[in-house]
């Protein structure tokens, strides 16, 4: 189990193909197997906003600051939701610590 914290720096995994479709992203894992609906992942507009901020340089705390700037949300709620989000899609990401 990877420990994900605000200081973690996420980057996109090379084992995922992603495609922007309107305001959303579709994540397609390169599993070496036939895809099915259970393995595909759809990011809504907010998730897509975060996905585009993932560059291998920004820590989750930096990304959270951007969320607070962009959306009408309190910092502590944004931090909690962002951490939940990163835990949920961790199979599509790599993490390193600052």
């Amino acid at each position: 189990m990877i420990m994900i914290s605000l200081s973690s720096i996420p980057s996109h995994s090379p084992s995922v193909v992603y495609r922007r479709i309107n305001d959303e992203y579709l994540l397609i894992p390169l599993t070496g197997n036939i895809a099915d609906m259970d393995s595909l992942y759809r990011l809504t507009e907010t998730g897509a906003f975060i996905w585009e901020l993932i560059d291998g340089e920004r820590a989750i705390s930096d990304i959270t600051s951007k969320i607070v700037e962009e959306f009408d949300v309190e910092a502590d709620i944004a931090e909690k939701d962002a951490l939940d989000f990163f835990r949920e899609i961790q199979e599509f990401l790599h993490f390193r610590e600052t």
Binding site: V17, R19, T31, I34, L40, R42
Partner: peptide, 28 residues
């Protein structure tokens, strides 16, 4: 529509998801 429609199509395509280029081409 949108990403949901694309996902539903992809889930029923014949594919081998080991090749990044092929997967990206199919998604497009």
């Amino acid at each position: 529509t949108g990403a949901e429609a694309v996902a539903m199509i992809l889930a029923n395509c014949i594919q081998q998801n080991w090749d990044r280029e092929a997967a990206a081409r199919l998604a497009a």
